[in-house]
Design a protein around this nucleic acid. Structure first.
Lengths: 120, 120
DNA sequence: TGGCTATATGCTCATGCAAGCATATAATTG
DNA sequence: CAATTATATGCTTGCATGAGCATATAGCCA
């Protein structure tokens, strides 16, 4: 009872943002942009992807409200436009890492691990 | 240079979690579970969805490491198993709401809005 | 055991969407 | 203007996945 259920419109907005973050390639792009603003070409070079692909991912992140765009001469600089993005990534990275470590521990053979035991 | 780029395995784990949150129906389920543990049937009743569909979404969230499962007699209780989930939702809800308000303000006709102006 | 309830699982269909190629637009320079 | 560089956009293909139906499994009770 902390809050009334969100409207469908809000749910969709929230889902869209999470979905934008749910693509490995886009997460890699964000990793690059965490070092500072980059042009499309620089991101392409950093990730060894092809240009149209990267360009579309950048647009997707931009339309999801996470990136800023700035034209400079012939180039376009993208940069992380909402500090929330960094927090989100940090949070999820943290628990993904804990999860990974738990699985490793389980593989090392202690039968009473916390996270990996399929408690079905 | 804050951190070395994450391994592909980590990227995939992180992406999976975000993807799990990137579905409107799953967000609604989480909203229900934020009020406390619920059986599958209770979630089904709360969302007016069909049972197999809800069950699958619950499993997906569970496998993504976000929900706990507890058998009680014939029923199975799912509950939010990682407080990070609440933080994530709160963060994204916050900025989605700001975005929505900005768009509304733009629609009301002030030409110098902050977030909605397509700065292309 | 059989019947009942609660949950999970095959299965199919339809949709979304990432990847990759070719090409179009935009801005710069000569 | 033409040529060049940087970015975006059509377009197709293939795969992932959500919805919905029927059915299977698991646990409870008589």
């Amino acid at each position: 009872m902390s809050a009334p259920p969100l409207s469908d419109a809000m749910i969709d907005r929230v889902a869209r943002r999470f979905r934008a973050l749910g693509e490995p390639q886009r997460l890699r792009i964000l990793q690059v942009l965490q070092q500072g603003p980059r042009t499309v070409g620089e991101v392409v070079a950093a990730l060894a992807g092809n240009q149209p692909n990267i360009s579309r991912h950048l647009q997707e992140l931009h339309e999801a409200g996470m990136l800023r765009r700035r034209r400079e001469g012939n180039s376009i600089y993208y940069s992380i436009g909402d500090p929330v993005v960094n927090e989100l990534c940090a949070l999820v990275c943290g628990c993904a890492q804990r999860e990974m470590e738990a699985e490793l521990a389980a593989l090392r053979g202690d039968g009473n691990s916390t996270a990996a035991a399929k408690t079905n």
